[in-house]
Design a binder for these strands. Structure first.
Length: 348
DNA sequence: AACACCTCCAACCGCAGTAAT
DNA sequence: GATTACTGCGGTTGGAGGTGT
């Protein structure tokens, strides 16, 4: 892993360290201590820049470094510290003995961030995702005012990509043609969600937080059938979060494919490992609090777009990967899934 | 088996702060 | 006070390895 060996213009080596180089560095520091990184490589007989030596020592060779997987306690500590300190990785690392800032940063970007997004929590603000709430609010407002949803308005808000916009407009057209669909119910239920205070404790899982109404195996068809038979349960978040839930291992949503996620049926051993127990419990707790338990069979597992509340991009790349697919792909996937489901029950 | 795609993480880069001159 | 050197930090990169088709 890493980069191929290369040298810069000064003849200094770059890229992955060899065992021999590691040994030279360790031997030198054990004899002379670290510091004076500029002159260290020359004295130690290394063709590396001082910066590279310092990084190798602090991130890998230091004897007090704890390697291996992060424990649940460490993970929770990182989340709590990040909530207070933000991306101050070195400050976070200083409170986690044996862990380096680089290791924590990597773990945050590859694991925790995704986990929070799956829970509907903005990893930057540690608050519920505003883009989902805003979407719900806008649609709610549109319905209550009995006005046609203006697609360009939604797009101009930067909330949606075109696929997700299609989803919204299609469901709105359902509203126009389905008499059971009542804006009053929609409004009431969404305001409950929107007005509920941010529950910071959602990361702490109470022992009894897995209520029996959390149905892990509800299919999209079942959700939509329930919607059509009992429209009082309608809410945009209900639709979005149930139909775009993720029981799928990231790799299975590879580019160019349209795999069927496991929405129902017996769970395989492999799949049961995919869904982290603590995450499911957190989702259940989160759902219960965000919706006051008013919506049966609720799950909160969706991530639909880059959080609009994120003040700074977590990655400069224009493509954000979440759970193995780009967010654009996920939006498209969710939208397609919904259309298929609507088609299956004759709503479109 | 071959290919394509994705994840992970070690290592790099550039900037900012501080110390020394 | 200005300049230079050094160190620390956060963001980003890119390739090995894993997985799916």
């Amino acid at each position: 892993m890493g980069r191929p060996p290369s040298s810069d213009k000064n003849g200094l080596k770059k890229g992955p360290w060899t065992a021999e180089e590691d040994q030279k560095l360790v031997d030198y520091i054990q004899k002379h201590g670290h510091g004076r990184w500029r002159t260290l490589p020359k004295n130690a007989g290394l063709k590396r820049c001082g910066k590279s030596c310092r990084l190798r020592w602090t991130n890998y060779l230091r004897p007090d470094i704890k390697r291996g997987k992060f424990s649940l306690e460490e993970e929770e500590a990182i989340i709590q510290l990040h909530k207070v300190l933000g991306n101050k990785w070195s400050a976070i690392a200083s409170r986690l003995p044996g862990r380096t800032d680089n290791e924590i940063k990597n773990y945050w970007n590859t694991h925790i961030k995704k986990k929070l997004l799956r829970m509907g929590i903005d990893p930057v603000t540690h608050s519920p995702r505003l883009d989902l709430l805003e979407l719900s609010s806008i649609l709610s407002s549109s319905l209550c005012n009995s006005t046609q949803l203006n697609a360009s308005n939604l797009l101009s808000l930067g909330l949606l990509n075109p696929d997700l916009l299609n989803l919204a407009t299609t469901l709105l057209s359902c509203q126009n043609t389905t008499p059971q669909f009542t804006p009053q119910n929609f409004q009431q239920q969404n305001h409950q969600a929107l007005q509920y205070p941010i529950n910071q404790a959602c990361l702490k899982t109470p022992v009894d937080s897995n209520p029996p109404y959390v149905n892990e195996t509800q299919t999209p068809q079942a959700i939509l059938e329930q919607l059509s038979s009992n429209p009082t349960n309608f809410s945009w978040q209900y639709i979005l979060t149930n139909l775009c839930q993720e029981n799928v291992e990231p790799q299975s949503m590879s580019k160019g494919s349209n795999p069927a996620p496991n929405y129902g049926g017996p769970e395989t051993e492999n799949q049961s490992r995919i869904v982290e127990p603590s995450l499911n419990q957190n989702q259940a707790y989160f759902n219960n609090n965000m919706h006051g338990g008013s919506i049966a069979n609720m799950r909160f597992g969706s991530v639909l777009a880059t959080p609009s509340s994120s003040s700074t991009p977590l990655n400069s790349s224009s493509t954000n990967y979440v759970n193995g697919c780009t967010e654009d792909e996920r939006d498209s996937y969710c939208s397609n899934l919904l259309f298929d489901s609507l088609d299956a029950i004759g709503l479109v």
